[in-house]
Computed example of a mutant assay.
Amino acid sequence: MTTVHVHAIALGVESFGDDDAPLVLLVGGTTMLSWPDALCERLAAGGRRVVRYDLRDSGESTTADPETPAYTLRDLATDAAALVEALGDGPAHIAGTGVGGMVAQVAVLDHPGAFSALTLVGTRAVAPGPPDDDLPDHDQATMRRLFARPMPDWTDRDAVAEFAAAGAEILGNDPAAARAVAARVWDRTPGTAPPVQMANQMGMVFSRLDCTPRWRERLSGIGVPALVVHGRRDAFFPVGNGEALAREIPGARLLVLEEAATAIPDAAVGEVAEAMLTL
């Protein structure tokens, strides 16, 4: 892992594969560890240079004040394009998961010359907040269970990991995998202040971003090959959101993972990697 500086900020990055291979840029959602190691390794074995990175206010990237971020969704999209330029391997296949998928959509729309393909995993075409009337919202029963829990002691690594595991069980993900990733995220978080930990563990900073103007109405202008991956059991962004993206992005392929929720399970890594490699 290292950092790359783009327009006065640092972005934490990790690379897999041959530096001379075509670039796949994985946008963290919000940390790079949202992307499974096994998927990065499979893509690299398929002849790609894979770079995953942390969004601002997470991991090894610049951390300022997650409670009042002085940047917008479009700044994060510009970060992605600038990172491709700094790496010198463009145009790149950009992939975003969760909130990182929103960054990836705007990046392709605002900086089309920087990107050659687009993969969206477990995301939607509208910013945090109430969705459009035709898009399914978060499953409310699941959200009540998820957010009714008391916050952990953010200074306690084990408590934070157990909190993540319990949340994963509510969402339908693998608790053991979530526990292990949360411990790694905790180790990479610059301090135990609750806002910083929440930005890393829960992505709460994203709900405070300025995400205007809307971009959904521009999706028909995406001119690169696109793949939409969505878990059938996703209660956070129900699968109808992925189906809408696949309908509205010209020529997009929809891959529904029947046994998945919000995370890419180990059993689906090979299928997702193969779909990405054939874009």
Score class of each variant (00 low, 15 high):
residue 29 G to P: 05
residue 51 V to K: 09
residue 244 A to D: 15
residue 138 H to Y: 12
residue 215 W to V: 05
residue 75 D to A: 12
residue 14 E to H: 06
residue 45 A to L: 05
residue 209 L to W: 06
residue 242 G to C: 09
residue 121 V to K: 03
residue 167 G to T: 00
residue 202 M to Y: 14
residue 39 L to K: 09
residue 175 P to R: 08
residue 177 A to C: 02
residue 233 R to V: 00
residue 164 A to I: 01
residue 148 A to M: 10
residue 119 T to Q: 01
residue 190 P to R: 14
residue 263 A to D: 15
residue 39 L to C: 03
residue 228 V to R: 04
residue 81 A to V: 04
residue 79 D to L: 08
residue 230 H to A: 10
residue 261 A to P: 09
residue 212 T to I: 00
residue 32 M to S: 13
residue 73 L to C: 06
residue 112 P to S: 08
residue 211 C to V: 02
residue 184 R to F: 02
residue 243 E to I: 01
residue 241 N to H: 10
residue 162 E to M: 04
residue 90 G to S: 07
residue 185 V to M: 15
residue 78 T to H: 12
residue 39 L to D: 04
residue 16 F to N: 02
residue 227 L to N: 11
residue 33 L to D: 03
residue 111 H to D: 03
residue 43 L to D: 03
residue 88 G to D: 13
residue 11 L to A: 02
residue 29 G to W: 01
residue 11 L to P: 00
residue 25 L to W: 05
residue 136 P to I: 02
residue 278 T to I: 09
residue 108 V to I: 11
residue 89 D to G: 12
residue 228 V to S: 11
residue 178 A to G: 06
residue 34 S to I: 00
residue 166 A to Q: 14
residue 12 G to K: 05
residue 178 A to K: 01
residue 38 A to N: 07
residue 26 L to K: 08
residue 109 L to F: 08
residue 193 A to S: 12
residue 68 T to S: 13
residue 88 G to W: 11
residue 86 A to E: 12
residue 228 V to T: 08
residue 100 G to R: 10
residue 66 P to A: 04
residue 13 V to Y: 01
residue 130 P to I: 01
residue 126 V to R: 11
residue 183 A to N: 06
residue 40 C to S: 12
residue 55 L to H: 12
residue 157 R to S: 07
residue 132 D to S: 08
residue 233 R to W: 10
residue 220 S to R: 15
residue 200 N to K: 03
residue 110 D to Q: 03
residue 62 T to K: 13
residue 95 A to M: 04
residue 20 D to S: 15
residue 93 H to T: 00
residue 23 L to N: 01
residue 123 T to P: 00
residue 152 P to A: 14
residue 115 F to P: 00
residue 3 T to V: 14
residue 250 P to S: 13
residue 157 R to N: 02
residue 213 P to T: 06
residue 130 P to G: 02
residue 245 L to R: 10
residue 186 W to N: 06
residue 124 R to H: 07
residue 244 A to E: 15
residue 62 T to D: 11
residue 65 D to V: 00
residue 96 G to C: 02
residue 182 A to H: 09
residue 218 R to E: 08
residue 127 A to V: 06
residue 215 W to N: 00
residue 229 V to H: 10
residue 233 R to S: 12
residue 110 D to C: 03
residue 275 A to K: 11
residue 241 N to F: 04
residue 12 G to S: 11
